[in-house]
Write a protein that binds this DNA or RNA. Sequence first.
DNA 1: CTCATATTTTATAATAATTATAATTTTACA
DNA 2: TGTAAAATTATAATTATTATAAAATATGAG
Lengths: 147, 147
Amino acid sequence: MKDTVNQLKEYLIKHDIKPSTIRLKILEYLLNNPIHPTADDIYKSLLDQMPTLSKTSIYNTMDLFAGKGVVKVISLDEKEARYDINTCLHGHFKCHVCERIYDFPISCDIQTPQELEGFAINDIDINFYGICQNCKNKERRIWKWNG
Amino acid sequence: MKDTVNQLKEYLIKHDIKPSTIRLKILEYLLNNPIHPTADDIYKSLLDQMPTLSKTSIYNTMDLFAGKGVVKVISLDEKEARYDINTCLHGHFKCHVCERIYDFPISCDIQTPQELEGFAINDIDINFYGICQNCKNKERRIWKWNG
DNA sequence: CTCATATTTTATAATAATTATAATTTTACA
DNA sequence: TGTAAAATTATAATTATTATAAAATATGAG
């Protein structure tokens, strides 16, 4: 238990962030719940552990984390930002039925398109939208029931 | 002039949309300004032509257009939605210096990643972020000036 | 053509995510 | 142990968007 906390502390320090209770709790939450949570998801999940927690602290912490490269902010077709603890290049699939967000790997050989020759590319977002296999199976079952 | 209006009318009708003054003006604006405008961009640009125009009408029209496939809503790393009159698959590059958004083609041979086998993919967003050539050149010039 | 009805547009208010500001609490360390 | 800096919180402000209902416009039957 204490070891875990120390690992989390080191993780933050390595990223040039002073550890604090809130920051450790948020980091722990993100590592245990790699579901691309929104600020509100994080807030609601930590509220019973930390009853004085404020939403502003979540935003402050996430801004700090994003600036130090601990999380990547992801923008899907929704108005809330989401936070991804996995900052390595990968794609996201959002199912518009269950709203779940799936990760998928991206072949590393993305070559710069000719049109962007001379551009500096710092970041890449690849988002797919559709229906996941789970939800597709459910739909099929419903069709059967309805005849 | 009239011919153009008729072409615009037909374009809407073909997309199952009843033409109206507002809809035609917005469509015309989008075709003449393929700059991925926000609702506010469109509103401000049309306000002098149509002084009674309301922001709500822009949102209504864009929702209608998006539903009928006349525009694609694009979500970049900003809170406002943008609208793209080009609904064919292509990528976007946003320069974080000049904020301009560039289009670039995507090689058609995007194969479904194994992880998404059995998923229905309805839509793909590919967004790159960085500094465009223009702004990079300007930066270089500033370095020179500064010594 | 004219009235009734449906559609479109507008004005207004409500909502929700985020940011700004300043006050309070906690931490660090002289 | 006291003080300055940093972190956290409460509160209010901002902004994009949506909801609602009223007003304006278009449509179509008689």
